[in-house]
Computed example of a mutant assay.
Amino acid sequence: MTSYRADTEPVQLTMQVAAKIRGLIVDQALLPGRKIHQVDLSEELGVSRSPLREALRVLEAEGLVSHRANRGYVVVRLGEDDLAQVYQMRGLFEAELLRTIVRPDSRVLAIVEHADARMNEAIGRLDIDDYLRWNREFHFAIFDLSTLRQFKLGVQRLWRVSEVHSSSLLSNLSEAKEEIRVDHRSIIDALTAFDVDRLMAVNDSHRLAGLG
């Protein structure tokens, strides 16, 4: 048991720190193109430099930060062409995942419905952080019906990059809430009926609108 904890706790801490930094990027507390001051950030997050460095390496692999000579880590700034490529790649990966899902049972449908309800509650509070969390839970509960593990890992990385962009598009959730609600209900209906073609079509238009 001691050996297990010694091996896993540093990894868990690294992922927790990475999640916190990712949240700061999504919230635009860390702006694109800006240098990340590790001393200040470690104090703000209440962690030592070691897990912070490991967390930054995780985020570098996700494409959210980059390491530059003589500057250290900076938040990645993506141009319109880069973002278009991210969304195009997401479309290819997500289509393959949805094409290969198995029919959901009542447990999975309940998870999807729960995530959708919590997401709508977040929209009601205009809580972008909670919206992003439950929107992600909603979609990945469906993606998890596919056994294509490498595609899911690819979508997870691309999703995190596009979420930074989505958070700025969704700065006023009240304007987008009806479109989001309608899209999600259509996705749930298609999933329940196991209409994969319809599911793929709605998911595609939802993503291209920057809503998921």
Rank of each mutant, 00 (worst) to 15 (best):
R133I: 09
E137K: 11
I101Y: 01
A176T: 14
S42F: 01
P51V: 01
G79N: 10
R185A: 12
S106W: 06
S168M: 09
I21C: 04
E44G: 04
V65D: 00
R49D: 14
R103F: 03
D189F: 05
V112D: 01
T14M: 09
N120P: 00
A95P: 00
A193V: 03
S42E: 06
S66Y: 05
V47E: 00
E179L: 15
R99E: 13
M200R: 13
R49F: 13
N70G: 06
G91H: 02
E137S: 13
R5Q: 13
L97G: 05
G23C: 03
Q28A: 10
A95F: 10
P32A: 02
S50V: 07
M89Y: 09
L211N: 07
F143W: 10
L13G: 05
R160T: 07
E80C: 07
D81P: 00
A6Y: 11
K35C: 12
F140C: 03
S162T: 04
N135M: 15
D189Y: 04
V161T: 09
A117L: 11
A176Y: 09
S3C: 09
A84L: 14
A19D: 07
A190L: 08
D127H: 11
L45E: 01
R68V: 06
E54R: 09
A201L: 13
E9L: 14
A69G: 05
L98W: 03
L170T: 01
M200P: 03
E62A: 08
A201G: 03
L109Q: 02
R185D: 10
F143H: 07
K152W: 01
G212R: 09
V86R: 06
R103H: 05
L24I: 02
Y131E: 10
A6Q: 15
E121I: 10
W134I: 07
Q156C: 06
A69Q: 12
G91T: 06
L13N: 05
R107I: 10
V47Q: 01
E62V: 03
R71H: 11
L52C: 00
R181G: 09
R68T: 08
L92I: 12
S162M: 06
S66M: 06
S3K: 14
R34A: 11
A117T: 11
D144T: 05
